[in-house]
């Protein structure tokens, strides 16, 4: 006998959508609230910046000027900013466990549901 799902009322449908939305927005804003968002570039400005000290040759200087930046001091922060790529092995392991665990969880639960689908569609063995 094919599985007959219950009928869902309008209110319950709205609640289901709301739950999903809260989870989505939560996932997006949680890192922001925890102050963990984004990789910041840290400028390490040098003293008395000149184009030469910043390693810009003549052609590059012309390019900066075409972009509207004529003063090397204004480009100082942009040129010297660098990312910090130090990372902790703990974070890497947490990430690996989460990603792999997630896919294993989803595929295993899916397989359970999939067998029901196939049985109902093609008839039991």
């Amino acid at each position: 006998m094919a599985y007959q799902p219950p009928r869902q009322g309008l209110a319950a449908q709205i609640i289901d959508v709301a739950v999903l939305l809260v989870m989505t927005v939560g996932a997006l804003y949680l890192p922001l609230y925890l102050g963990l968002a984004g990789a910041a570039k840290n400028p390490q400005p040098i003293d008395n910046p000149t184009w030469e000290a910043l390693g810009q040759n003549a052609a590059e200087q012309a390019q900066w000027q075409a972009l509207g930046i004529t003063d090397p001091a204004a480009a100082n922060d942009i040129i010297t900013a660098r990312f910090d790529y130090s990372f902790s092995w703990a974070a890497l392991i947490i990430m690996a466990v989460l990603v792999i665990g997630y896919f294993v969880l989803v595929v295993r639960l899916s397989d359970k549901e999939y067998r029901e689908v196939i049985d109902e569609r093609f008839g039991g063995q």
Partner: peptide, 16 residues
């Protein structure tokens, strides 16, 4: 992970 690790972890939690 290099720079956006917290987003990655928060998103995995969301999908789980």
């Amino acid at each position: 992970l290099l720079g956006y690790g917290s987003q990655l972890i928060s998103m995995m939690c969301f999908y789980i």
